[in-house]
């Protein structure tokens, strides 16, 4: 792990100077605000857009705070993850393809340190983004609908952040293994298509985000919860391990 602090500094500088620490959390914040707001003002919006037939009235379901947080997490799961995927899928593969990695790989650097430094910095961005997204959603939900219980809310947040760690590990592993195009396709399949498996089972990593919400609703079957948590952590560690091995193996893919 020689050189970790130096590589961390490099990754941090890149993320900071390309505004990633700012713009990605802002996007998550907007995503978090949108569902509580639009749902609350749905009737007004429908009336404003107009052309509703006389006497037309739809009965909107009564929402509890957990419903809105769940909707916000749904936004993070679609647009949020797409933003993370698009922003970081080239982290390793693009550096190889454009030749910037050459001057680093030619030194006897530790690939573990290099991979981990990227993982840590992106995870930090993921953390700030999750905080921003949750804070925005919870703020509007509290103002417009009602309060959360702080304990389960925090548990839900931590659960979601751990899921994000897996997403980031998968993105980096794909980037270490393939060129950017194939990596993007691969990561997309694993992260998004895998979510269909949650229809069948509750104990897979893809169930973790919704399992977090079930904690708030106090409807989680805890054995499934811990299984999904355990598998997520395992998959994350495995992804990181494969990523480091492949990054080293693909040294000769650098443009010289």
């Amino acid at each position: 792990m020689r050189g970790l602090p130096i590589l961390l500094q490099k990754e941090f500088r890149e993320a900071w100077r390309s505004w990633k620490f700012l713009w990605i959390p802002l996007v998550f914040a907007i995503l978090g605000m949108s569902d509580p707001l639009t749902n609350y003002y749905m009737m007004d919006i429908l009336h404003a857009v107009g052309n509703l037939p006389e006497g037309f009235d739809i009965q909107l379901p009564e929402f509890v705070p957990a419903d809105l947080l769940q909707a916000s997490i749904g936004q993070f799961q679609m647009i949020g993850l797409l933003v993370l995927l698009a922003s970081f899928i080239g982290s390793i593969s693009k550096e190889r393809a454009n030749g910037t990695a050459t001057l680093l790989y030619v030194r006897s650097i530790s690939f573990s340190a290099y991979f981990i430094s990227k993982f840590l910095v992106i995870s930090a961005i993921g953390f700030v983004s999750a905080v921003a997204g949750f804070a925005a959603s919870v703020y509007y939900t509290t103002v417009l609908y009602g309060n959360f219980e702080i304990g389960t809310l925090l548990a839900c947040f931590v659960t979601y952040f751990i899921w994000l760690l897996l997403v980031i590990a998968v993105i980096l592993m794909m980037s270490a293994t393939f060129n950017t195009m194939i990596a993007a396709t691969g990561a997309f399949i694993v992260i998004f298509i895998g979510q269909f498996l949650t229809i069948l089972w509750d104990f897979l990593p893809w169930s973790l985000p919704s399992n977090g919400v079930l904690l708030i609703r106090d409807m989680m079957y805890m054995q499934d919860y811990w299984w999904s948590m355990f598998m997520t952590v395992m998959f994350t560690i495995i992804s990181i391990a494969i990523g480091i091995v492949m990054m080293k193996k693909n040294t000769s893919m650098v443009k010289i």
Partner: peptide
């Protein structure tokens, strides 16, 4: 090693890059 077309991180300064290279 100096490649024929060396590529750098454009967001670093000359000193930052050389210092990083030295440390690595």
């Amino acid at each position: 090693f100096l490649p024929q077309y060396p590529q750098f991180y454009p967001w670093l300064s000359a000193l930052e890059f050389t210092e990083m290279a030295a440390k690595l």
